[in-house]
Design a protein around this nucleic acid. Structure first.
Lengths: 107, 107
DNA sequence: CCCGTGCGTTAGTCATAGCTTACCGTAAGC
DNA sequence: GCTTACGGTAAGCTATGACTAACGCACGGG
């Protein structure tokens, strides 16, 4: 699966916090780090992971580095999730109906 | 965030494999473990995590233990994803428009 | 009543990931 | 050109988590 990296990236709470802050719009590293319980290098490392997962893009802006959410990468996860969601619900409904058809005592 | 556990649960590749197998329908532990590169106790532990995350439910069936996806828990993640998706896309569009309005040379 | 089967649990090992501190490159300001 | 912000990188520590092996428990069949 291609989005294994993306899932792993979103698994860490701190990294998710960084990512959620980016959902408001583009931010520089310092801005993201400010208010977070971790140091700036830590945020930098998180951003690197997010970038390698295809979830964010970055561009230089003077001496600062601005990060932004990459809708494409985010869309891929959403697509996977939608497929999974449908499949799971279908199976669940089928199972519920099967149990009903076989009587309430099941088995 | 309530679904932090759920995200952490889905972060592990093996655990995601187990979870994906459950999307086909209810399965016993042995069935799930069969064909996976890990031992049965490992699968058992993974299922425990998934259960505590509210992603699966289990019921006893004789001496076997049948696991099934819990649509409710899965729905919570999906809800989070949907909110996030909307917010990120909105911000991205706004940013794109802002860049356009300020001229192609930006800044 | 005993034995086999199917799972959960515990103990212990090993790898990985997140964090900090320190350092280095780079772009602007005086 | 020197200094000051800003941020990526390296090294090292620590904690957490995934896995196996060994054990214990409940159910069902003979």
């Amino acid at each position: 699966m291609t989005n294994a990296r993306a899932f792993a990236a979103l698994s860490d709470p701190t990294r998710r916090q960084v990512f959620e802050r980016l959902s408001d719009g583009p931010r520089a590293v310092g801005e993201l780090a400010y208010g977070l319980p971790v140091s700036r290098p830590a945020v930098s490392q998180h951003l690197k992971v997010l970038k390698e997962a295809g979830l964010v893009t970055d561009r230089a802006e003077g001496t600062r580095r601005v990060y932004q959410i990459d809708p494409h990468g985010l869309g891929q996860i959403r697509a996977w999730f939608d497929r999974f969601w449908d499949q799971a619900l279908t199976a669940f409904a089928a199972e519920a109906e099967r149990a009903e058809r076989e009587g309430h005592d099941d088995q």
